[in-house]
Design a protein around this nucleic acid. Structure first.
Lengths: 112, 112
DNA sequence: CCACATGTCTTGCATAGCAAGGTATCTTGC
DNA sequence: GCAAGATACCTTGCTATGCAAGACATGTGG
């Protein structure tokens, strides 16, 4: 067996990871590892190695903004919040997703 | 407005195009432009510039095989057919898709 | 004070869509 | 015949992005 399954999963994630992050942040602010864990459990990302560079890009693009929070116990954390621009991008993604996903679903529906 | 929508669409396609092709070929053999038209109409690809290199890779990977067909009228066409290996990859994709797609759907369901 | 967990981030690589451009062959109209 | 356009195939070069691996810093517990 080659790494076919990993390659497949990786490529699907390329299209959706950024907008899953935006959707999560539209519910509530979260910090890096918290996002990483939530996403990893659901198979939406593999490690922080993809998430932190993505978050940095998003911050630069202006779809998220951040603040440091120092809890009374434990490590200082950088919390991420979605911006208005981020919400706009998320709406565009949701539209595109609803256009493409049914076609893929239909094609895969005949499988298995 | 930047090219946000195009970037989003392009990245979703990166994950699914190859397996939409396999799913189509599991129905019947098709030739290059025929595949390109079918996929373009449904927003699954933008031009032959992505399809032909993909088909070449797939041929090399052994998930499809090809034969030339010269019709009585018109151009000679290279027809693509799915192989057993292609069918196996398609099944793996369908499984992964069914794992990931519901999570994305749920996250996007709250959008607009 | 040493080991481990928790947090953030970087480096370098491999992959794949696509715009643009190229070539050849077949049909149609004059 | 011959020019123009449709049909069919393919290539080059660019860019974007997930990720393995690793680095670093700080807090916690024995």
């Amino acid at each position: 067996m080659d790494g076919a399954r990993e390659r497949i999963t990786t490529n699907i994630r390329k299209g959706v990871l950024e907008y899953c992050v935006l959707a999560l942040l539209s519910r509530r602010d979260m910090y890096g590892l918290e996002l990483a864990d939530w996403l990893a459990v659901r198979g939406l990302t593999a490690s922080e190695g993809s998430l932190y560079p993505l978050l940095a890009r998003m911050r630069q693009a202006g779809t998220v903004q951040t603040r440091w929070v120092a809890p009374e116990q434990g490590h200082a954390r950088r919390y991420y919040a979605i911006t208005d621009q981020g919400r706009a991008h998320l709406r565009v993604f949701a539209t595109v997703w609803r256009e493409i996903q049914p076609h893929v679903d239909e094609l895969m529906g005949e499988e298995g």
